[in-house]
Design a protein around this nucleic acid. Structure first.
Length: 601
DNA sequence: GTAGGGTTAG
């Protein structure tokens, strides 16, 4: 309908500018790319053509800039380019990146002649959007439509297997790749490797890794991560030494693996130190991220001084570094130090966030600094503009409850913007707030509220984790559940517990059964089972199997109960033992009949 | 010109 025009004169081509645009749009910073693009739209008379939109959409995908991408989609339609398969594929990928799977899928379905990239874009969108089943269904759909999958397809499919932890199907995919002679490049090998590790095909992973001729950081990191997660720290160290270069991701993989592993908090301390020394030796730049991980690791392993060393060595400290150190001090009952550090943070003009407040409130909560806690709580919003969240309300309620200010605690609960019935919606996986509220209600005798809360928990299918304690003896981690008699030395452990009980009785100790919190957390237990809590089993095992000079280090997944706390204090005196007990919230250091937490268990 | 792998702090 239009007469022919030279390309540079047509409003629908940017051909003269394309090389320049491409250069700008491949800029590592997509914001810059988009700004340059928008500037060009304003300044030149040419309208972007079909070769430019994929670049532009890519930049929007990288930024997850939904509204910007929507505008581009509109421009595509206006320019009658909405049947171009390249642009459609980019749009599918764009909507997927923004997490809108419905829009992505709707568009995908409307692509008249889908090519393999269309399928791959949609498969990737499903995998990255947390819907691996959809990805696998599409893979089957491709077969039906006779579209031949390529190596990129297989990366997506393997990624879906990894998300589903489906080793069997993952293995089938690997054999499919072989049968169909799909070219296996480094990326695909790495995807296979990751799938094997994450799905538990450890031997397959090792075999594949040994067979690989070419390896990069994406091949090494899963190996490192795999061994560290398995607790095979010697192997992890070998892998690390063999790595041609160790980047920040590798370090983080290693450090976060320790934290997720229960034994990490007990026995991996040596490796943790080694990691730190290695980082220093290699002259790796300790960024704030890594610094935070190290501080966290040291405090979780019980070495506050080492954490302090890291903290003070930092030239620049962001809010994460400060918060981690404050949290670490709180965890160890170093209340003054935690509060002083918070003041220093304010002096350093670092703006506290909600986590900082939670941590500093925890320091008050653990050790009964009721006035400081109250002041901070009310300053938080007024002075610092941090909005209260349920976690911090919980801390404040805890402070008041522990100090016997039950009326004030109840008042605060009533005033909470989120009523107790809404707590589940806020944080469905966390029943800590329930336990706390139950505890408060129980203390003031509001039993109807307690049973009401328990009903909500039961109805919502909130599973109570069973209490479990671990102890490392001679490099082996032993785990105990409450009332457990699976351990080979079970008989000896129970006779040690009997001995402990009679020695405690002889000095006039009466078991404390009033710890309702624990009855709620471990409610399968009856009162008479109080003496069988997992931490007591672990401590008894430590006493019979370790040299008297060695401190007994126990890690419990839940909060330690009041009776166990009192008993452990007495054991530390009667048996002249140093006992370190790490529970879900804090680090108790028992020595000579005292705990670093005093009477605040 | 479009699609792909590890890490992501309290």
């Amino acid at each position: 309908m239009h007469q022919y025009k030279a390309p540079q004169a047509s409003p629908y081509t940017d051909a003269p500018y394309r090389p320049l645009l491409r250069l700008f749009l491949s800029h590592p910073n997509p914001t810059q790319s988009l700004l340059i693009f928008l500037q060009m739209l304003h300044q030149c008379e040419h309208f972007p053509d079909k070769f430019t939109f994929p670049f532009v959409l890519n930049a929007a995908s990288g930024l997850k800039a939904f509204r910007v991408g929507r505008v581009f989609h509109g421009m595509v339609i206006k320019a009658s380019l909405s049947s171009d398969v390249f642009i459609l594929n980019s749009l599918v990928y764009f909507y997927g990146s923004c997490g809108d799977l419905d829009l992505a899928y709707g568009l995908f379905m409307k692509i008249p002649r889908k090519d393999v990239v269309s399928w791959n874009s949609m498969i990737t969108a499903f995998v990255q959007g947390g819907y691996p089943e959809g990805a696998l269904e599409l893979f089957r759909g491709m077969e039906k439509e006779n579209v031949k999958p390529n190596d990129v397809t297989m990366v997506g499919v393997l990624s879906a297997c990894t998300k589903k932890l489906d080793l069997e199907f993952g293995r089938w995919v690997c054999s499919y790749i072989e049968r169909n002679e799909i070219s296996v490049n480094l990326t695909l090998s790495n995807a296979m490797l990751d799938m094997y590790w994450k799905c538990g095909g450890i031997e397959d992973a090792k075999r594949l890794f040994d067979k690989m001729l070419e390896k990069d950081i994406f091949s090494w990191t899963p190996m490192l991560d795999g061994y560290a997660t398995l607790g095979e720290y010697d192997e992890a160290r070998h892998v690390f030494d063999a790595m041609p270069c160790q980047d920040i991701a590798a370090w983080n993989a290693l450090i976060s693996a320790y934290e997720q592993n229960a034994s990490a908090q007990l026995g991996a301390m040596d490796l943790g130190r080694w990691v730190h020394v290695y980082i220093e030796k290699q002259g790796i730049n300790l960024n704030c991220h890594l610094m935070t991980s190290l501080i966290d690791m040291y405090t979780k392993c019980g070495d506050v001084e080492k954490a302090f060393e890291v903290f003070y060595s930092a030239e620049r400290k962001d809010v994460f570094v400060w918060s981690a150190m404050i949290g670490g001090l709180a965890m160890h009952g170093r209340r003054r130090a935690a509060i002083d550090l918070f003041s220093k943070m304010l002096e350093a003009k670092v703006k506290p966030n909600s986590v900082t407040f939670t941590n500093v409130l925890c320091a008050c909560s653990h050790t009964g600094l009721v006035n400081e806690g109250r002041t901070l709580f009310y300053q938080m919003e007024l002075v610092h503009g941090v909005v209260s969240e349920d976690k911090r309300y919980a801390c404040m309620v805890d402070i008041l409850g522990r100090s016997g200010l039950l009326e004030e605690a109840v008042e605060l609960i009533e005033k909470m913007p989120m009523a107790s019935s809404r707590l589940l919606e806020l944080d469905p996986g966390n029943h800590g707030a329930y336990v706390l509220l139950s505890n408060i209600y129980a203390k003031i005798g509001k039993w109807d509220r307690v049973s009401g809360l328990r009903k909500v928990m039961r109805d919502s299918g909130l599973k109570k984790e069973p209490g479990c304690s671990s102890i490392e003896v001679n490099g082996i981690v032993h785990e105990f559940l409450a009332g457990d008699n699976c351990h080979p030395l079970s008989k000896e452990i129970y006779s040690k517990l009997d001995e402990i009980a009679s020695r405690l009785k002889s000095i006039g100790y009466v078991p404390n059964k009033s710890h309702l919190l624990q009855l709620i957390e471990e409610d399968n237990m009856k009162d008479h089972a109080l003496s069988l809590h997992s931490e007591k089993l672990a401590i008894a095992f430590g006493l019979i199997s370790m040299a008297p000079s060695q401190p007994v280090r126990v890690v419990k997944n839940l909060r330690v109960c009041g009776d166990c706390h009192s008993v452990t204090k007495l054991i530390s005196k009667l048996y002249v033992r140093e006992i370190l007990l790490k529970d879900r919230y804090r680090f108790h250091h028992f020595r000579g009949g005292h705990c670093s937490y005093m009477d605040y268990w």
